[in-house]
Amino acid sequence: MIPEFEYAPYVWTSYGIFAIIVAWQVIQPLLKRRRLKAELREEQALEEGDYSHDAQT
């Protein structure tokens, strides 16, 4: 029996879990940042919209 094949699934799953969780540490801030930016832009646009509206009346 070749030992490498016996343990390979365990080793690869472990490394996979490590990779997935670390990748999430990279991706989560990026996603959140994108969401925040969109929210902030929307808020700003709303406010500016109100401003121009007020100026016209």
Binding site: P3, E6, Y7, A8, Y10, V11, S14, Y15, I17, F18
Partner: peptide
């Protein structure tokens, strides 16, 4: 432990 010890490097 043959190859299973390689888990050590992430664990």
């Amino acid at each position: 432990q043959s190859d299973s010890f390689r888990i050590l490097y992430v664990h």
